[in-house]
Every structure is written in structure tokens, then in C-alpha cells.
Design a protein around this nucleic acid. Structure first.
Lengths: 210, 210
DNA sequence: ATCCTTCCCTAACAAGTGTTTGGTAGGTTA
DNA sequence: TAACCTACCAAACACTTGTTAGGGAAGGAT
């Protein structure tokens, strides 16, 4: 069911974000380890190992293990919503909006692969805690954006009306974001190419038209 | 067609598996907690709490926490492959095989929701450990079944040839199994109904045909 | 009445957890 | 030169983790 392309943890080969200073480097390393092993399964000693320092030294840069996770997720979500908002602000038609959202999503996966993987794994549990309330907020905004686009498309007659819209929403949402679990930046396909193929499947299906 | 293979109705309120005796009850409870919080994040004391006994008492029934996970996953996979194999043995056409596999998958999600969720979350990490080598085996069989069906369909001209088959495989696979993260048995839709709608989207797309 | 099986409890163990404290080497600034 | 800041280490802290050992209550079988 799931792929098993485990990548050995290296010290500095992260293709991740342009990190400002040491703090950013450590965050990128932590994100990589979190994504690979899960948040709770990851010990601060493991992060320190991967970063080349001792566990206690991490606390010079961060308050706690949880605050690392917090900063990783909130940074990602800020950038995600910057992209989404500019798409939504363009007020395109439903189909064009969907296409733009999907493409933007794959670009985010390309840039924040680790953060997306962490989000996928842990968001459901974390959303309950007060500190991570913004995750639940984000989920609601997310649903409004996608579900609204789908409903508008059904009303305009560009999306099929014989489908459960809510089911279609989860379908589209999941198909896009689970890609973070197998996607590796610098692979065979660019984010835009993957988005194009995904959109082709979601919009027109994989069956030959008769 | 409907398998009324006389499954003994347990007196517990869990809609999960038919549990033989106390051991099965405990396994079902553990699966529920694992699915909710993740395996490593779950303490044996938490499982014991949910089951109404003390942590140490679990070790009368099981060797270790890991063996609980093992039994949950292997039991699920055994049943999954029983279903898949009978589908594959029927040697239907590519499209019919795909439909049958998807439908069977949603039935498995319906019956083993917790186990599927655990599998989704942890399989990637576990597959490396020798004890869970069967997870990697299962992944390979899985890929062969789905990818083979898709390739056969392309060769037969029933599936589109202009798509990356490997991408399509991951697309179909993921769309089906991530449903375990939101599906709740006894909800508005039956497994068969969800399968029908998913298949409609995967095969024909969500866009209106022009 | 005795034995045996099933099931659980109490109490502890060693290892690992996130985190704190005090110290220090090296570069930058005053 | 002296003071200061950055980035780290070494060593410990209180706590939680999975797990074990020994014992006992209930009930059916002999």
C-alpha cells in the first residue's frame, strides 16, 4: 500500500528550505527526522545526532522539542496560505481554481516535503492541543476553499452533479496531499508535471472515453 | 455474493473484528488506541486503561507491545489477501478487476478500520525490521496486483495510455486507502456505495463530459 | 476437599525520555 | 586588554517507558 523508499539521514544534504542561520539548519534537520520516524518516535538525541551536536545543545536554540514542531508546521502553513490566498484572490472559474490549487499544492510539497509529511501524520492528534489550534483553523479554511470550489463548479455545470460533493472533496484533497509520502524532490517529474497528470486523472478519469 | 460466513457476534460494542475470547477483545482495544494515537505514542498503560486492567496484566496475554502490533497487522493482512486472491483468481478483465479490488478494499476498511489506519501510519518504518518483513512482501504483492491490472488495461485499450502508469498506480492506491483515516463504520454510506462513487471518479473523472 | 486454570494485581526494575544547569572555547566589540 | 556574545559540551535531573516477578482470587474439574 505504501512505498518504502527510506532515505538515510544525512547531516547536511537536505534539499529543504533556504535556512536562515544555524537555527534554520537545525529546523530543517529536525523536520527531516520527524517526517521519517514520526514526532513522538523521534528523540531529541536523534535530532542532535543528525545535526552533529549534543541533545542539550538544542535547548540553546529552542525552548522544547514541541516548539520545534510548532515552528516547522506554522512556517509551512504560512507559506501554504500565502500561495492559496493569491490563487483564490484571482477569482478564476471553478475548474481553473481547482487546477491552480492542485498545482500550487504540488509546489508546496516540492518545497516543504518534510513539513507536509509531518502534517499528514500528526495533524489529527495535534489539532486538539491549544498550542496547535491553528491546525484546526487551517483545516477549516482548507475545507472551505476546496469544497466551495467544487460546489461552485457543480452549480456552474462544469463538475458532475451526480457525485457526493463531500466525498469528492476528500477524494481530491487526499489524492493531492498523500503524494508527499512518496514524492522526492529532484525526481523524474517536476511538481507541475505531476500536477498536470493528477489533474488529468481527477478531472477526466483513467478510463478511455468511449 | 454476500458472505454470511456466520461470524459470531461479540457482546462488545466495538464494531471491529469478531474477537475470540479475552485476547481478541484486548487486541481490538489496542488497535483502536494505536490507530488514534500512533504506535510509539501509545503507552501500554493507556491500552490497559482503555481495556479496564493494569499495564502489567497485559503481559499475561501478550509477550510484548510489539507482538500486539504484529498480531493486529498480520491478522488484517491475512484477511486482506484472502479477499484479493479470490478476486485475482477470477481472472476478470482489467476494468472489472480494478472495480472488484476497489470494492474489496473498502470492505476491508469497513471491517478493519483500525488496522488499516495503523498500517498506513507505521508500515513504512516497520517494513525494515525483520519481524515485520511480511509488510514489505505485502507491499510488493500489492504493487504487482494493482500495477499489473493497470498495465493490462492499457494494453487492452480500456485505460488511457497517455498517463504514467506508475503515477496512476499510486493515485489509485492512495485514494482508496487514505479513506481509512476518515471512514467510520455505520456512517451515511456503505462500503459498496463509497466504492461505487470512488470508482466513478477514478474511472470517469469529476468533470462534466463535453 | 484438592487441584488446576484463568485472569488479574501489586510492586518493582533498568533503560530511555525531555530538559536544566554550569561551564567553556572562540570570535566580535568597546 | 577587557567585556561580551554565540554556540556548544558534560553531567546530571525527574519522570516515563516497556517489562518482570510473585502472589492471589474465582471457579470448574477431579
Amino acid at each position: 500500500m505504501t512505498d518504502n523508499e527510506s532515505v538515510p539521514i544525512s547531516k547536511k544534504t537536505t534539499t529543504e528550505k533556504p535556512a536562515p542561520g544555524r537555527r534554520g539548519e537545525l529546523l530543517a534537520t529536525a523536520a527531516e527526522v520527524f517526517a521519517e520516524q514520526g514526532y513522538t518516535a523521534t528523540t531529541v538525541r536523534r535530532i542532535a545526532d543528525a545535526a552533529g551536536l549534543l541533545a542539550g545543545s538544542l535547548y540553546y536554540h529552542f525552548d522544547s522539542k514541541e516548539s520545534m514542531l510548532d515552528e516547522i508546521l506554522s512556517t509551512f502553513l504560512d507559506e501554504l496560505w500565502a500561495g492559496y490566498d493569491s490563487v483564490l484572490a484571482a477569482r478564476l472559474g471553478p475548474r481553473e481554481t481547482l487546477e491552480a490549487l492542485v498545482t500550487e499544492s504540488f509546489r508546496e510539497i516540492d518545497r516543504h516535503r518534510a513539513a507536509v509529511a509531518i502534517y499528514q501524520r500528526e495533524a489529527k492528534d495535534l489539532a486538539g492541543r491549544p498550542r496547535f489550534a491553528y491546525l484546526a483553523d487551517s483545516q477549516r479554511r482548507f475545507e472551505r476553499a476546496w469544497l466551495g470550489t467544487l460546489e461552485r463548479g457543480v452549480a456552474d455545470g462544469v463538475f458532475r452533479a451526480d457525485l457526493d460533493v463531500r466525498l469528492a472533496y476528500r477524494f481530491v484533497r487526499d489524492t493531492v496531499w498523500v503524494a508527499a509520502s512518496w514524492y522526492r524532490p529532484g525526481g523524474a517529474h517536476s511538481p507541475e508535471e505531476i500536477a498536470r497528470q493528477y489533474l488529468s486523472m481527477v478531472l477526466d478519469g483513467i478510463a478511455v472515453r468511449t
